[in-house]
Design a binder for these strands. Structure first.
Lengths: 228, 228
DNA sequence: CAATTAATATGATTTTTGTCATGATATTTG
DNA sequence: CAAATATCATGACAAAAATCATATTAATTG
């Protein structure tokens, strides 16, 4: 089993703030897990007895709304920790985590994380920074959802995907989502979403190839996302 | 000047986790301020060199959207701290804070809070708990905004006001907002909001008297807020 | 207290978005 | 590989919500 001390991914997460002995401890009790695309890591309402450190792959954090649609709140990718809020506030999980690509994750037991959080100021500081960031982002998302029309939100979130995940060799977004998932991210009906993608295509703003999407005119998309 | 050690409001905030000597320190450098209804405490983008402890009154946390409307993200009331995220993550302010009632607040300089946050685990724990709570709430709000129709959101947020602020002697919500503010909370146009309030009135769910709103049928409102 | 301004209310209309129906492509699976 | 299933796409329509216009009422101020 690979060791946390030598894990490259660790460098990008809050775990980088841990010292050698803490890392070794965690390394010894952590559990590497492979998660296939589409598999559920945890579900809202559940108890969590640890957090996940993402080595590779991407998952979506979703929440089911009353109308039965799955809203995507956030994506979590390699270098991120998953389940921090739940473990720190000793609460049940508020969001479901579902892999949208095959993933390699390490499960770290709750008490290890809580110990480190209590005893290592640098670590807790890093975790708090991430939480604060999430909170700021969430507040911004609320405004988008409440005030922007769907068309603007679509542009906004496509640009976000571009920024977060980049593009592949051919220039398509490096993350592939179904139309339904994009709709769940933007907060609209799947049919409406499809129509808008077609519309963007016709206007030459994007190009689609199956599930893959290429943003052709970033400038114009930015203007669109701000309501012009 | 009143002392933090004897402040009743403190008991309800994270500051309760401070020990006597810390409280005395803060008491000596804090600054009591009176803020009139409508006055701005701080604005998005600004730097904050401290946090506010709310002794009395209520303020709204808002963010301006591209279309020029003010979205209300959250209310802050007596016993709450204001500006925690900003000071802890050493960031600029993301939301504006505007009094919706006359307020008494105490300003506590940044370095005092940061010191306490560094040195007192109980205090930092409390603050983190609040942040985690805010984050969970924000995620729930995102789903509401993205997925619920305006009518449901209105019911949902009226019930929230009821829960957070209670009612006056006559049974009206103890917090008075303009129609425009309610619209900004629900995330809709003022005219639409007014129409829906009229509609609820006609159906006997609420009663309005100027700005004051009384919820007559809580059960029905709850059902409404869940889409029935 | 009258005059001005701001807030509330309602109607008419347009735009946006959702829903239902149906067909075309993909993808999966026996 | 063919049948079954899921996903994507588009049209037609309905519902929701925004916008514009215009009263009406309430609040502010000279």
């Amino acid at each position: 089993m690979s060791k946390c001390e030598h894990c490259i991914v660790r460098q990008f997460s809050s775990l980088n703030a841990l010292n050698k002995s803490e890392l070794i401890r965690i390394s010894e009790c952590k559990e590497s897990v492979i998660i296939k695309k589409g598999e559920v890591i945890f579900e809202e309402g559940q108890h969590l007895d640890g957090i996940y450190c993402i080595r590779s792959g991407i998952c979506k954090l979703t929440k089911l709304s009353d109308n039965g649609r799955q809203q995507i709140i956030k994506f979590v990718k390699s270098g991120d920790l998953l389940g921090q809020r739940t473990v720190i506030s000793n609460d049940t999980v508020n969001l479901s985590a579902i892999a949208i690509q095959d993933m390699e994750v390490c499960f770290i037991p709750k008490n290890e994380i809580q110990d480190a959080f209590q005893n290592n100021q640098r670590f807790s500081g890093e975790v708090i920074k991430v939480l604060c960031n999430d909170l700021r982002e969430a507040d911004n998302t609320i405004v988008s959802m409440a005030q922007k029309p769907v068309k603007e939100r679509l542009a906004y979130y496509l640009l976000h995907l571009l920024e977060d995940f980049g593009v592949d060799e051919e220039g398509f977004l490096a993350v592939q989502l179904s139309r339904e998932e994009i709709a769940g991210m933007v907060g609209t009906a799947t049919e409406s979403l499809i129509r808008m993608l077609s519309d963007y295509s016709k206007k030459g703003l994007i190009e689609t190839k199956g599930k893959r999407i290429k943003i052709l005119d970033t400038m114009q998309m930015e203007r669109l996302s701000e309501g012009f």
